[in-house]
Design a binder for these strands. Structure first.
Length: 566
RNA sequence: GCCAGCUUAGCUCAGUUGGUAGAGCAGCUGAUUUGUAAUCAGCAGGUCGCCGGUUCGACCCCGGCAGCUGGCUCCA
């Protein structure tokens, strides 16, 4: 039905805009799109006319007819459709060539379709965008119109509501409304400023992350932001990653580059001493800020930026330790993700691509270790055959957020390349130098991206342990301002993130503002509470919870705001 | 980077078929001192993204640039 809706849209566009070169128009999860090439530049202002034309075709209840034709007939039918002719040429000789006809519109198409146009019950055009022919950057750009289509009006409403819900959760909107972060034109695109409220959350995330890593057997590193050209030549980045790197800075006749990755620095720390098998595995983690030149058109809020902090780590181990380290790392990653409220986790295992470095038997061993760990940890996973980086196989973990969207966060990657390039070694029991195994991993991915996803997951209503402002004390009148400050001081001393609303408004207004700011707890302090040393607790989610002694609330807060177990 | 669209006050948006702009919220000041989602009044705030062109005159028309948005491509 959705695919048929694409045909009907193409038919409508052809009727309205004269000569249209058609490419393809498949169904999508929620609807359909069609790629065309036409003189007229389509805009959303064209949608009502196209939709009206589509509605006419649907109302006419036209049949979809399947036509089986010879290749010669097909070529004749498509003589003024260059993209279609190219698609036709791709159809294998032993396959039937079919067209589907609906009214005066017919399209080279494998089908199937609905029987009659009236079976398209509900649709709506959504956006128009550019799209390279066959997805190749060097090809001409076609115009793509996306639409939603559903079995009935209610189902279409559900789709549109889901899109609206995603819009309401957009971290860029919430980031502005809740004053969490910004990017500044004067500074440059893709460079993030964490405002006080966003930074408070980041501090909690980082503190939690550091504690977890120290308890999890990692050491923490800090490494420089720039390094000499030699370093990046040795690592190979200047050969294969240069277009993603910021240009060199010349200092004392040497070229320095801003780091796009942390690995070479960690390797230098490794190489600062002769390593023994007795000290392996080494697990070194760093919140490492990197800069990458991302094309302007791909930047997106916090999710795709040019400067970001990876929660990076490198594990150096012996081949014999590798399987255990993999399992340990994946288990650790999942426990951390669950702590942040992401419980629905799945995995992708990417295996050896055609062009790869490293011995095939090492690849096989590493891939098997990854797969075994996934099985032992009972994670659902899919294999992405040949999808690994050239330097090693990897596992990516994906989570589902509160409205079911999937995001890739963690990645665990083998590296058979850098240990070689940097000639890393350790002395084994046999007294000889051996090459260590190297594993890259990031759990949150980058703090920017993770924070964006977290914001959308919670719709800005961060749980108590993450909330930038956990408690706001609301004096009923100015008479209670001193008492409110005492309450706040007492909570502050206990480690809470707390403020006082000293504005002149009525209590209703103060509550409204606190709700809009998504503060987990509001404490109303009127004359009754001040006299009794109490606070009236209102929770963001549950509303008025009644009065209790300040000390009791302080204990409740301490209990509830502890970082989660993991 | 590519295609298209957008850019007016801190935010969300009106507006002028070319005669240099307005609202709500936020801010500030004053009044109000209030019991669980918006008290009232006043004030202030804008080289209408930037640069250039056309014009007697440009926020409006044209060109260039920047940023953003939706996609595409990319994502070691």
């Amino acid at each position: 039905m959705r695919h048929s809706a694409a045909h009907v849209m193409a038919a409508a566009v052809c009727r309205l805009f004269g000569k249209v070169c058609l490419d393809i128009g498949p169904a999508t999860d929620d609807g359909f799109y069609y790629d065309f090439d036409l003189e007229h530049r389509l805009t959303p202002e064209d949608f009502p006319a196209i939709e009206a034309e589509m509605a006419r075709i649907i109302a006419a209840d036209l049949p979809f007819e399947r036509l089986e034709v010879s290749r010669a007939q097909a070529e004749e039918m498509l003589r003024d459709q260059p993209y279609k002719l190219a698609r036709l040429a791709d159809i294998p000789a032993d396959e039937n060539i079919t067209f589907y006809r609906c009214g005066d519109f017919r399209d080279l198409c494998r089908g199937p379709h609905v029987e009659r146009s009236s079976q398209i019950k509900a649709f709506k055009l959504l956006t128009v965008a550019g799209s390279y022919y066959r997805g190749l950057e060097t090809n001409p750009m076609l115009q793509r119109v996306y639409g939603a289509a559903a079995a009935d009006a209610a189902a279409l409403q559900t789709i549109l509501q889901r899109l609206e819900e995603a819009k309401q959760r957009d971290h860029r909107k919430l980031g502005r409304e809740l004053d969490l972060f910004s990017a500044q034109e004067l500074v440059g695109p893709g460079l993030i400023h964490w405002h006080p409220r966003g930074a408070r959350i980041r501090v909690v995330i980082e503190d939690f992350w550091r504690q977890a890593h120290l308890r999890g057997g990692y050491e923490l590193l800090y490494t420089p932001h720039i390094g000499r050209a030699n370093l990046w030549e040795t690592s190979g980045h200047l050969d294969f990653y240069r277009e993603s790197m910021y240009a060199a800075m010349e200092i004392d006749n040497a070229a320095y580059y801003l780091k796009p990755m942390n690995c070479p620095f960690h390797i230098q720390v490794y190489k600062s001493a002769k390593r023994s098998y007795r000290e392996l595995p080494l697990r070194w983690a760093e919140l490492g800020t990197v800069y990458r030149y991302e094309k302007a058109g791909v930047l997106h809020g916090l999710l795709r930026v040019r400067g970001f902090t990876q929660d990076d780590a490198h594990i150096f181990c012996t081949p014999g330790q590798m399987a255990a380290e993999i399992k340990r790392t994946l288990d650790f990653a999942m426990r951390i993700l669950r702590a942040f409220g992401f419980t629905d986790i799945s995995a992708y295992l990417a295996t050896r691509p055609a062009k790869a470095v490293g011995a095939p038997e090492n690849w096989a061993q590493a891939t098997a270790a990854l797969e075994q760990a996934l099985r032992e940890l009972q994670v659902d996973y899919q294999r992405d055959e040949g999808g690994g980086a050239f330097y090693g196989p990897k596992v990516d973990l994906k989570i589902q957020d509160a409205i079911g969207r999937a995001w890739q966060l963690s990645t665990v990657q083998f590296d058979f390349n850098l240990p070689e390039r940097f000639d890393m070694s350790y002395i084994a029991e046999d007294g000889k130098a051996h090459r260590p195994y190297m594993i890259h991993r990031a759990l949150l991915g980058s703090l920017e991206r993770f924070f964006g996803i977290l914001t959308e997951h919670y719709k800005g209503a961060f749980p108590l342990w993450l909330a930038p402002e956990q408690v706001r004390v609301l004096p009923l009148t100015d008479q209670q301002l001193d008492y409110a400050r005492q309450v706040a001081d007492a909570l502050l001393a206990a480690g809470a993130r707390v403020t006082v609303d000293g504005s002149a408004g009525k209590i209703g207004a103060k509550i409204r503002n606190a709700q809009v700011d998504k503060i987990p707890y509001m404490l109303v302090a009127g004359p009754r509470e001040a006299a009794a040393g109490q606070v009236s607790v209102r929770s963001r989610a549950a509303g008025d919870e009644g009065a209790c002694p300040l000390a009791a609330f302080r204990e409740k807060l301490a209990r509830e705001s502890a970082a989660p177990e993991y």
